[in-house]
Write a protein that binds this DNA or RNA. Structure first.
Lengths: 352, 352
DNA sequence: GACTAACTGGGAAGCGCTTACCACCAGTTG
DNA sequence: CAACTGGTGGTAAGCGCTTCCCAGTTAGTC
């Protein structure tokens, strides 16, 4: 049954016919071709296209030109403000460059990520941007790398948003440095005993932030007790759960709780409250990322600011970036843009 | 200079050659074609594809088949949790159906929206989902409608996520009813004098929520004073600004502030605080949407729950939905799915 | 004024893939 | 055993578009 009546879409051919010119001329008139077309013809074509409601078939163009206008973005979870803010930046930059963005979700699952990259390759995007990918020692890591290299060899560009991703262009997030700076500034505020809500041990982002935090404490001769670290999902609920666990295990002497992401920090704060502790008053709390909402919560959250939208924009620019010298064999170039990270002190960490 | 060295991607032809079969056989072996292929051949092809790292070119497939596997999603602002949560739902549903999602941002600008729909049409997506679109009396409205109808006539499907969008399939958000229910439950809690942070007057969503709220009050013989309504952007900053303005104009007798979206409510709460008022204690506050964060803020926000992820999923299902009877001329069918909306009472509105 | 140069249409090949359509080969069947 | 089926490869014609290449025209040049 279906809906029937599918009037096929208007094609360039229809336009050429209507304008009484050849296909070639029509094509040349409608998109910035190098070739000039007599104004008389051009106008006739443009007019016909207008009248018929012609819309060029991007796919056909892509096939004919052998190049697309697509940018693929892989994120762990688009409903997470961290990623959606980055996505916003990518989309902004892409749209202003006339590119279309395709978003895929990997759910922080290496297997899924690999599969997604494969599938996305079928779209022959100009650029693939991977955010929230870890390149940790997962078994799929090598495959991923191979897949991406192959993609680059076919002329694609890859950009990571990450703390390090050796052979690919990367917008470098200095998670370790940021966490370290945070730790130091907390110590300076008078905090002395810390607990951490960390992500899954395999996630490099979490590892780095944890390690950086440790480094910062160590610089002041302070230590982070192993039993004051809880590993959990990189989500609000994970944060809640981990904080609850920590609380149960005993947090008596702890005066500051650091969650390795803002989203987790928010969950943790709720857990504290549910346990009768007031964040900021009974216990300092700090996060990481500076997602938009955390300045509006109470107490406003001390965190490490990453200019997320900018990161998204930069990633795209980087991918198209400077001619990478290093020509010859694939290896698009492992250029890198560092991103300035900054500790933002708010009400959740009053001076002690 | 560029990067040179672009080993062209492996094509089906290469695979066919390597497997020593014809192009047709290769094609038939690699994707569920109706035709059967001798196992001997099939395995040879599959094996060759594997070895060469063949990845089918989606665009070429699309051109050849005349049908794509793309879903286009238009949102006002992807970094807004409202939209990113919906997007998450759409992406989930799409991926499990083997479809790829393309996201475009309209910034709540009708002109941009129209342009985007046009551009997206070039992708010949199977479905276009429009969220946060208003179909209010904007001058572009007719054009949009025409564009979308044309899209449907060419075999595309359109789904709106909205409060009403006459000629297209719609996941119906009962903004009016939700706001009305909210108002009534607030009255029941003892609130008597209200102020509203509304969106731009042209946005239907805002109009409806405002009107519904009014209706709810009216049902109890209460009124909403004109000077207790502030119109502003549909953003956190808009909410902050509007609340500040209201405060300045005098809010003495008001005991509840309703913001027509949670994001705005969050901004408004910050404004209240900055003015020395404690939300929930000095003044009740309510929002709309139930975005994930609002249960974690303090005080947790009373709001109207929309199952956003589900809405996204539903939108996609609806678009593919039931054979729409109504065949014949275009008009994919203006079927509709209502979404259950529910008042969630939290700490920002203690009983008075 | 003959000859070259510079333009600009159009024809047609081809991008990577699907899918009629045809051919061929067993395997029936009376 | 001839005519006939059903099944399965291959051939080739597209899908909508770009672009190479050729040819015709006009403009320049000595």
């Amino acid at each position: 049954m279906e809906s029937g009546a599918n009037k096929p879409a208007v094609t360039l051919n229809d336009v050429a016919l209507a304008a009484g010119v050849s296909l070639a001329t029509a094509s040349r008139s409608l998109n910035g071709s190098a070739r000039k077309v007599n104004d008389t013809y051009r106008l006739r074509v443009v007019d016909a296209a207008q009248r018929l409601g012609y819309i060029p078939n991007l796919f056909a163009q892509a096939v004919a030109k052998g190049a697309t206008t697509t940018v693929a973005l892989l994120v762990a979870d688009i409903s997470d403000p961290y990623f959606s803010t980055i996505a916003s930046g990518v989309i902004q930059a892409a749209e202003s460059a006339g590119l279309v963005v395709t978003i895929a979700v990997t759910g922080r699952n290496p297997e899924r990520e690999l599969a997604t990259v494969r599938a996305l390759r079928g779209q022959r995007p100009r650029v693939m941007i991977l955010a929230g990918s870890r390149m940790a020692g997962s078994p799929q890591e090598a495959d991923l790398r191979k897949e991406l290299s192959a993609f680059e060899e076919n002329g694609g560009r890859v950009a990571f948003i990450s703390q390090n991703a050796a052979p690919f262009a990367t917008v470098l997030l200095d998670n370790r440095g940021g966490a370290r700076a945070l730790a130091e500034s907390l110590v300076e505020l008078g905090y002395r005993c810390f607990a951490v809500v960390a992500g899954p041990p395999t996630i490099v982002t979490s590892q780095d932030r944890l390690q950086g935090f440790r480094d910062g404490l160590a610089a002041h001769g302070l230590d982070l007790a192993e039993h004051h670290i809880a590993h959990t999902d990189f989500t609000r609920d994970g944060g809640y759960q981990a904080a609850t666990d920590l609380l149960q295990a005993g947090l008596d002497d702890v005066d500051l709780l650091f969650a390795v992401s803002d989203v987790m920090a928010m969950g943790a704060m709720s857990a504290l409250r549910d346990a009768g502790l007031e964040p900021g008053r009974d216990l300092g709390v700090a996060g990481y990322d500076d997602i938009p909402t955390v300045r509006d919560i109470t107490p406003s959250l001390t965190t490490v600011r990453i200019p997320l939208e900018e990161v998204g924009r930069r990633a795209l620019e980087l991918a198209f970036g400077v001619a990478q010298g290093q020509d010859g064999a694939g290896q698009g170039g492992s250029s890198t843009i560092p991103v300035v990270t900054e500790v933002v002190r708010r009400d959740s960490t009053p001076r002690r």
